[in-house]
Design a binder for these strands. Structure first.
Length: 654
DNA sequence: ATGGGTAGCGCG
DNA sequence: AAAGCGCGCTACCCAT
């Protein structure tokens, strides 16, 4: 297919172009942007000490953060990359559009509107005004990673995101084949259209000369259109999943524009405080090491290699475990063993805890906080092969939640607060994966536990040790809980032994007892593996496929891995499907209120809501999450249960 | 300087 | 290579 390409450079042509595209019921588009970091940067939040000029002080030019001692130009690789690409964290709130491309049946057009070239170009504002009837219509808007472009466009329409229907070519391809290594447009074009082109210019198109920049900026719209033209007929194979994903996309765009509100003052206060604690922990460890450290290499508590040499060569301790690649492990589990003989190991453990908190969650998050005290992370739809969302820049799905012995690790969660006049709602599914397991396996005792509202972990304990339900100790329940989460997904006795600290023989007995109690689980796992071997894939209740060709591998290790993935996918993937349906329903339920979804952590939703509306919103959210249908019937044969809490910060909603 | 691999670790 | 699965980020280390 050859598309006629035109460059629009006057108002008259633009009018005609819009009139032409109004005849189509779908069109592809792509925008080119360059960064305008000033607006987003921490500038507004950083108060420089009096008398220090910005150029004179050692600050990262990207985020204006004070430079760590060892860094010379940028504070982190991220900032270095950001500066180089001129695309700092692909910021949807401040990017400047310099070119808009459109593509439809038989044609594609490019509208330059802000490339630095001196020749005449239309004004951005005029272009967006002219295009409004296209973007704000029921025409399908097609693009690769369409959410990013729609969000960048929203700036020019008072923050209003263009309405559905949408079509994301990346998402479509991901549903059709989740095993490709990369999903950028260059790879997809080569694979599905046989069209190979260089994407190299992408980063510097803005700075390239005009003709080159224009030629480049039309490619993406053109390729997206052709991919859609080629692949959209396959949507009907996907059983509604593509439509679901596009609904989810609408929610994710809203979430990203809203962002998660944080207490930036507390972040900035905690930063030096944790640095002091880290330095103290480091000094403690180094004091314990004393003269034991050989002279021939520098001491570095963060170096796994050097720690291994210290513990296993210098101190001659026995190495508890090797890493995947065969080096001597010094991970937390190993250090816990070493700690019985060496106080240094304990000191390293404590140092690591504080360092993790500091570097990942405090220092790591601060550059991501926008000037309105919100973090706008990216929730990604086309990453996790089970269909889960993932989160990046920064990842807000792995913030510490569990209590540590040494100190309060939930402190970061406490910094995610309700904005003034609002409160947070945190709603999470109770044991959703085990409920799906019950449904899938049809195991009688799993089903009955959930149907009668019995505590599953307690029931498991009573079945394993043959005791009455009311005689189960909290320790037994805790071990039983570990069993439920491990054995359900092909876990062996080894792991539970480690986690619960029970001897090997007993762990084996527990393993056997568990599978005697729930015989449906092993039988089901066997069926799933067999299905996967016969068909080359497994799928969720909603038909989300996971292709696993390695299931037939002759290599037992590789095959074993595929088998565990096969058993896991129908569980984790169905939970992901349910969460995606739920997030759309919750979002719909919230639209009449001053309320926004801000975070999703797999089975947990965080919502901010006006104080005076919380009473009304709570039951709606709960219903939206519990009432999940497959066709016209409830998706599971056991009830879905949602815990829901209200508070002023995330940690308080427990 | 920059990029890739490895180890480790946070979450569900 | 690998005996729960699924992610993303930080730091180190070594090669270019």
């Amino acid at each position: 297919m050859n598309l006629t390409t035109k460059t629009v450079s006057n108002v008259e042509d633009l009018k005609h172009l819009v009139a032409d595209y109004e005849r189509f019921d779908a069109f592809a588009f792509d925008i080119e942007t360059h960064a305008n970091r000033k607006v987003r940067s921490m500038d507004a939040l950083v108060t420089l000490p009096k008398g220090t000029s910005r150029t004179a002080s050692a600050r990262c030019p990207s985020c204006l953060r004070e430079l760590p001692a060892r860094r010379r130009v940028w504070c982190s690789d991220e900032c270095r990359d950001a500066a180089k690409k001129d695309k700092p964290a692909l910021d949807i709130m401040t990017n400047r559009v310099w070119s808009i491309s459109l593509a439809g049946p038989g044609r594609c057009d490019v509208i330059p509107c802000g490339h630095p070239d001196p020749r005449f170009q239309l004004h951005r504002a005029d272009v967006f005004a002219a295009l409004e009837p296209l973007f704000f219509s029921d025409r399908r808007k097609i693009n690769q990673n369409v959410g990013f472009d729609l969000l960048s466009i929203a700036q020019h329409y008072d923050g209003t995101i263009p309405p559905p229907p949408y079509a994301d070519t990346m998402m479509l391809v991901f549903l059709l084949n989740e095993n490709l290594w990369e999903y950028n447009l260059g790879k997809l074009s080569a694979r599905y259209l046989g069209y190979v082109y260089s994407e190299k210019l992408g980063q510097e198109a803005y700075n390239a000369d005009f003709e080159k920049a224009i030629r480049y900026s039309i490619i993406d719209a053109k390729m997206a259109w052709m991919l859609w033209w080629k692949l959209s007929p396959r949507i009907k194979r996907l059983g509604g999943l593509f439509d679901l994903e596009m609904d989810v996309l609408g929610v994710l765009m809203q979430m990203r524009r809203t962002g998660a509100y944080v207490d930036i003052e507390e972040f900035r206060r905690l930063w030096p405080e944790l640095k002091r604690q880290r330095d103290k922990a480091e000094a403690t460890a180094k004091a314990l090491i004393g003269d034991d450290w050989p002279d021939d290499y520098e001491i570095n508590l963060r170096s796994t290699q050097k720690l291994a040499r210290y513990f296993y060569d210098v101190k001659g301790l026995r190495c508890p475990r090797l890493t995947d690649k065969g080096s001597r492990s010094v991970d937390a589990a190993s250090l816990a063993v070493l700690a019985k003989r060496s106080p240094v190991a304990q000191a390293i453990l404590e140092y690591r805890e504080i360092l993790k908190l500091l570097s990942t969650y405090i220092a790591g998050y601060i550059p991501h906080v926008d000037s309105d005290s919100r973090i706008r992370a990216s929730f990604n739809q086309a990453r996790a092969k089970t269909g889960r969302l993932s989160c990046s820049d920064p990842n807000l799905q792995n913030i510490p939640a569990r209590h540590k012995e040494t100190f309060e690790a939930t402190m970061v969660r406490r910094l995610f607060v309700a904005p003034p006049g609002m409160v947070l709602i945190v709603a999470d599914y109770s044991q959703i994966e085990l409920r799906i397991l019950a449904h899938q396996t049809r195991d009688p005792k799993l089903l009955s536990a959930y149907r009668t509202g019995l505590d599953l972990h307690t029931q498991t304990a009573s079945l394993i040790w043959r005791t009455a339900l009311d005689k189960v100790t909290s320790e037994q329940r805790s071990i039983a809980k570990n069993c439920n989460f491990n054995f359900a997904f092909e876990g062996g006795p080894q792991r539970v032994m480690e986690m619960s600290g029970i001897p090997k023989g007993e762990a084996q007995a527990v393993y056997d007892a568990w599978h005697r109690a729930y015989p449906g689980v092993k039988k089901w796992a066997k069926r799933v593996k067999r299905f996967c071997w016969d068909n080359g894939y497994v799928e969720t209740l909603y038909g989300r496929k996971r292709r696993l060709p390695e299931i037939k591998s002759a290599d037992w290790a590789e095959r074993g891995y595929a088998e565990r993935q096969a058993v896991n996918h129908p569980i984790q993937g169905t939970a992901a499907d349910i969460a995606k349906i739920a997030i759309v329903q919750v979002h719909t339920a919230l639209c009449d209120f001053t309320a926004h979804l801000t975070l999703q952590v797999h089975d947990e939703f965080v919502i901010e809501v006006a104080e005076d509306e919380v009473g009304e919103v709570l039951p709606l959210v709960q219903r939206a999450m519990e009432d999940i249908k497959l066709g016209s019937r409830p998706v599971l044969d056991v009830p879905l249960e949602v815990n829901i809490n209200v508070g002023t910060d995330w940690a308080a909603c427990k």
